[in-house]
């Protein structure tokens, strides 16, 4: 058995090493702000203070103090509401398109035409359909998450090895349960990939989504900060979105690794 790395070595590679680059970037940022004496970009400390006040209050006493939990919760609800909707619509649709060539020919061209349209271009229409408010935002995030989910699900269904169908038939699996017993499990890694991509895009789009005139939410806070020239608020919002997106993605990956540990693709 080859010698296992020591526990401290493992800790260093898991936690210390990945932290080096962000810390260096923070340092560079701090130095740059100090050296140029700019008034436009806040220093890391200013952002840090803002973040604290954003979360817990007690430093400034402005409209943003202690509002982070509310904004965060609103954004979370919208991201996951839209994501869940995209999954609920996208996965069954992807399964059907993958399985049924007639439906694929019917639906696919339309999907392929809609896909390249950037979500931002949908903003005006979305506000017309859903008015001002969170539903328009949810629609935009839904659109963004929907396409990778459908496309990856379809791909997963279509790329099941034909050999597996032969093996299942030989072992007495009837046509009707073939889908549940062979296609679905075989397509799972692709479906999960689609979910992971859609999830990332959902977080990515929340800022755009919340430009539709919602009073609360991380994207809304960033836009307010921009209008008030509070760049520290903008950056603080970015940090929260980035961090939340990162943690939730890691959770998804951990889930993937647990449920799909048979797949050679796992452990990303």
């Amino acid at each position: 058995m080859p010698p296992q790395p020591s526990a401290s070595r493992v800790w260093m590679t898991t936690w210390l090493l990945p932290a080096v680059l962000p810390l260096l970037l923070l340092l560079a940022w701090d130095v740059a702000v100090r050296a140029t004496g700019t008034m436009l970009v806040p220093s890391p400390q200013a952002v840090g203070l803002m973040l604290w006040d954003f979360a817990f209050g007690g430093i400034y006493d402005d409209a943003f103090s202690e509002t982070l939990p509310t904004h965060w919760l609103q954004s979370m609800t919208r991201v996951y509401g839209a994501f869940a909707l995209a999954a609920l619509v996208g996965i069954p649709l992807g399964l059907v398109i993958g399985k049924n060539a007639a439906i694929r020919r019917f639906v696919d061209p339309t999907l392929q035409m809609l896909r390249p349209v950037p979500v931002t271009a949908w903003l005006p229409l979305s506000m017309i359909f859903f008015g001002v408010g969170p539903n328009a935002a949810i629609f935009l995030v839904f659109l963004g998450a929907f396409f990778p989910i459908v496309i990856n699900t379809t791909f997963g269904v279509k790329s099941v090895e034909p050999r597996l169908f032969e093996a299942a038939a030989m072992l007495g699996c009837k046509g009707t349960s073939m889908f549940r017993q062979v296609v679905l499990p075989a397509a799972m890694p692709s479906i999960f990939n689609g979910l992971r991509l859609g999830h990332g895009i959902a977080w990515f789009l929340i800022v755009v989504g919340e430009m539709t005139g919602v009073p609360e939410g991380l994207g809304a806070a960033i836009m307010d900060g921009r209008m008030l020239s509070r760049t520290d608020v903008v950056i603080a919002g970015m940090v929260v979105i980035g961090f939340t997106g990162f943690v939730t993605d890691r959770l998804l990956v951990a889930l993937n690794n647990r449920l799909l540990k048979w797949s050679p693709q796992h452990n990303v």
Binding site: R163, L164, M170, L171, C173, A186, M188
Partner: peptide
């Protein structure tokens, strides 16, 4: 059908099932 078992050159095992579950697949049907 199960009366004519086939062994393929590229195995054809179900990757999401364990060895035991693969073997039990036929009887399970």
């Amino acid at each position: 059908g199960p009366d004519r078992g086939m062994v393929f050159q590229d195995y054809g095992l179900f990757p999401w099932l364990t060895v035991r579950q693969n073997i039990a697949f036929g009887p399970k049907q």
